[in-house]
């Protein structure tokens, strides 16, 4: 049987709180960077799936299916050890999480774009806007508002999945926890991993609440929610 948790194990966690906080910083930075990259790639990808045609559309769709069908763990390892895209674990993890998130974000945006009524586009064309302009100034603003709930989901998924970057030794929150545990203080396993989990929980909770706020702020008065 493992030894009962001792008072000193909690003390050990408290002593190393600064390390855990630093790890939390890395986790947050990785989340934000990945979401941004995912947005930059995912939004155009979603638009291409709706409005594009031909080989470009097919290529985007296929890339999406592949990225959504492969474990993040495999993507990270492949980028780091196989293709060696970068010697920096942070950069590699950002690319892996960002690419995968782009594949999911593209679907959120695609759904949102498609949910905007056809008549909106027609009405915009009727006042003399070009197709591109009509999409940009009438459809996209409505679609972006409708994608907030899906985006919220995606945000917390990425946040939790940053923990998988432990596989390439990136010093994010879970890695810090693991290092503390294996750095000789193995009796503190429960205390360490519960603390780490609690921090993740607080992060997802705060993220969800803030994005709820965002959703309220951006919702159109009287308009139905997506």
């Amino acid at each position: 049987m493992p030894p009962l948790p001792l008072q000193s194990d909690w003390a050990f966690v408290v002593e190393n709180l600064d390390l855990l906080i630093a790890g939390t910083g890395v986790t947050v930075a990785l989340t934000v960077a990945s979401i941004l990259l995912g947005f930059l790639l995912g939004f155009p990808a979603g638009a291409i799936e709706v409005y594009g045609r031909g080989p470009l559309k097919r290529a985007v769709e296929t890339a999406g299916v592949v990225l959504r069908g492969t474990p993040l763990l495999v993507i990270i390892i492949l980028l780091f050890f196989g293709l060696s895209v970068s010697s920096s674990a942070f950069v590699t993890a950002t690319i892996a999480l960002g690419l995968r998130s782009a594949a999911y974000q593209s679907q959120i945006f695609r759904g949102a774009l498609q949910s905007v009524d056809e008549g909106q586009l027609e009405a915009a064309r009727a006042v003399g806007m070009g197709r591109f302009q009509a999409i940009r100034s009438v459809v996209v603003p409505q679609a972006l508002r409708r994608s907030v709930p899906g985006f919220q989901n995606e945000f917390t998924i990425v946040l939790k999945d940053t923990s998988i970057a432990i596989v390439i030794g990136l010093g994010e929150l879970l890695t810090v926890g693991q290092n503390l545990y294996q750095g000789g203080q193995s009796t503190a396993a429960l205390e360490i991993f519960l603390t780490v989990s609690l921090i993740y929980f607080v992060l997802t909770f705060v993220t969800n609440r803030s994005l709820d706020r965002l959703d309220d702020r951006f919702s159109i008065p009287g308009g139905e929610r997506a």
Partner: peptide
Amino acid sequence: LFRGTPLLAQLFVLYFATPLTT
């Protein structure tokens, strides 16, 4: 609780921090 924390952290808690394996 389970949706708000990473699956990997849950695996670690169960594997390293509980007597489950034993």
